[in-house]
Design a protein around this nucleic acid. Structure first.
Lengths: 345, 345
DNA sequence: GAACGGATGGGTAACGTTGTTCAAACTCTG
DNA sequence: CAGAGTTTGAACAACGTTACCCATCCGTTC
């Protein structure tokens, strides 16, 4: 029953079994030039018979490992699951295996993970909403093909995939203004670092909100609570907004979880959604779609973003010197039951 | 700006810089026997000065890769995030890096992922609620240290960590019976394979339910809808239960998402929770705790399970021949607002 | 003072794969 | 049918690390 594992089959075993050189087997494995159809068949048969699988560790020492690493900041954000689905779907036909590192919150953890992936000679990296400094991202991208998702600002060393957060914020403001709202508040994720202030999606959403408000002649109504993109951030931000002299009739939360926190604070204050206050989220995560919640939210199409990231990464692995591409997708608004016309009053 | 990445620092560079042999450097890296304190310091200094990091690929060819792989069936189940937190927390002081493979639903995908991890010479595997055949699990465990989480049934080749699902189900039934319920129905995840029927948590929960009902003299009231552990499964299962002649006054859903589906179906039927029907979930995921939902659920303490799994794995990596351990944790019931006494009628 | 033994450090051969080089065996062309 | 090119497959040297073994060196013991 508990017999020790038999020695692993290596390329040498295959070569001997097929009566060819190891070089030949290697060529067949990689679809490389210089192997006749007859030899291909012979080798493939030997591989199948012996159940051979190449060792990625050994491969990594010379060539590729056929592994791409994905770094994401938060396992609990369901939007990232969509992204991941997009990545794996795009890669499913290929030989690449996706591996992710869990829990990379903060610059230090990110650095550790990126180094770990490089040390394991991964062929490419997808970095999702990284907070690391631009210098570090460039350093990483210089040593391994990299695609950065969800961070604005062009780069000459890595490709990017983003959602147009300014448009997303505009969609929300337009929708609420069309319903008749004027006092539309926003809960943002606080940002102090100047580079991130320009590049992170949360900052772009806040900018989009301000611009759209001005465009609708609501510049005087701009009202922002600066907390964080968490459930708690939404709760606290909303309490803050409700305590201000002119209470908002609509709250644009920067993320779905934030909107849920907001709804909790609103309920606690004895107010109703959307009767007294309309609420919108961002991300259109599974949470937003869930019946009893039914949150109006901005849909980013994570699958599409993920698929794009994977495509760009494979392209770059193929040619490291090609010019960088920057894909920007357009979000759409999904209207559900948390937004309505403001109370008559 | 876009200068090509400089050649990577290797152990040879460190050895030259510290004026010692590569063997010596290797010994220091691994805390191996045969290096004097003086040499340790000299080498560590050289490592720091050059910023050297060992190549995991090269290491894997001879020794360890300091990588453990985690396989989980569903990124969207938040309970697994807790598990993962437990694993990473336990491993955070060590040199091990955790990598996970996404989306392993079904036997084929599981097989692919497990092979991929073995091919990458990972030092150990944590398999979370795998559905693969026992024979395959044994094969995997024979070639790499393995801990299986959330699957009952002892093994002599791998360690296991489980939650006592029978107790969990009993807690639910007792709670509902104490409230005065007699018609307590259960929604289970359908299982046909005989081995899995004995080993999978869902089957154990159904068994626990039946036993507990009998123990309370409610054998005649046992009522099961057999669907799946999904939102849809909960919805359809509940519609089925509501259509039966004797409508249940309480529904024990096998998982939190199932309970949400159930609540949707109940609302659609014009009934209220817990006024007309009480509902309980299982897992105590973040979803259950969320205010507006506030679902009574069984808490498995995923962090603790994860920490145990990681500890067992490290122990087994240290000694592959030690006898297998099987840790079984006891769940607890978290009572919230979806359970109450049955309607008077 | 010779023989012994533990502590320390180095030499060397793997580990399993791939890129390069090279020779042999073919296939054309004039 | 000779010469030139074009396939085809093999030999071999990396890649960066670790396991194993051996050579010192020094202090102890008889």
């Amino acid at each position: 029953m508990t017999k020790p594992a038999p020695r692993r089959i290596t390329i040498v075993d295959v070569a001997r079994h097929a009566q060819v050189s190891t070089t030949a087997v290697s060529k067949v494995l990689r679809n490389a030039y210089g192997a006749s159809p007859a030899m291909r068949i012979k080798v493939q048969q030997a591989i199948a018979e012996l159940g051979y699988r190449p060792s990625a560790a050994a491969r990594g020492l010379r060539g590729q490992t056929y592994t791409v690493g994905v770094m994401l900041p938060d396992m609990r954000n369901l939007f990232f699951a969509d992204l991941l689905d997009g990545i794996t779907a795009q890669l499913s036909g290929t030989d690449y295996q996706v591996l992710l590192a869990p829990g990379c919150n903060g610059e230090k953890a990110e650095a550790r993970v990126m180094e770990a992936m490089i040390d394991r000679s991964m062929d490419g990296l997808v970095l999702i909403a990284p907070v690391s400094s631009k210098a570090r991202l460039n350093t990483v991208a210089r040593s391994v093909p990299t695609v950065v998702v969800g961070r604005h600002g062009p780069s000459t060393t890595y490709d990017t995939v983003t959602d147009d957060d300014v448009i997303g914020a505009t969609l929300v403001v337009e929708h609420l203004a069309d319903l008749g709202h004027r006092r539309i508040a926003h809960i943002e994720h606080q940002e102090t670092d100047p580079v991130r202030l320009a590049e992170m999606p949360n900052a772009q959403r806040a900018n989009g909100y301000r611009e759209a408000m001005r465009a609708r002649g609501l510049a005087d109504e701009i009202d922002i609570a600066s907390t964080s993109y968490t459930h708690e951030g939404g709760y606290l931000g909303t309490k803050e907004l409700l305590a201000r002299p002119a209470r908002p009739t609509a709250i644009f939360a920067g993320a779905d979880v934030v909107a849920l926190g907001a709804m909790e604070a609103i309920a606690e204050a004895g107010l109703s959604v959307p009767g007294d206050i309309s609420v919108t989220g961002y991300d259109n995560s599974a949470l937003a779609a869930f019946g009893p919640i039914s949150l109006t939210s901005v849909d980013q199409d994570g699958r599409q973003m993920g698929a794009n990231a994977a495509r760009l990464l494979v392209d770059r692995i193929g040619d490291r010197d090609r010019r960088t591409s920057h894909v920007k997708l357009t979000p759409s608004l999904v209207i559900r039951r948390t937004t309505a016309a403001p109370p008559a009053s």
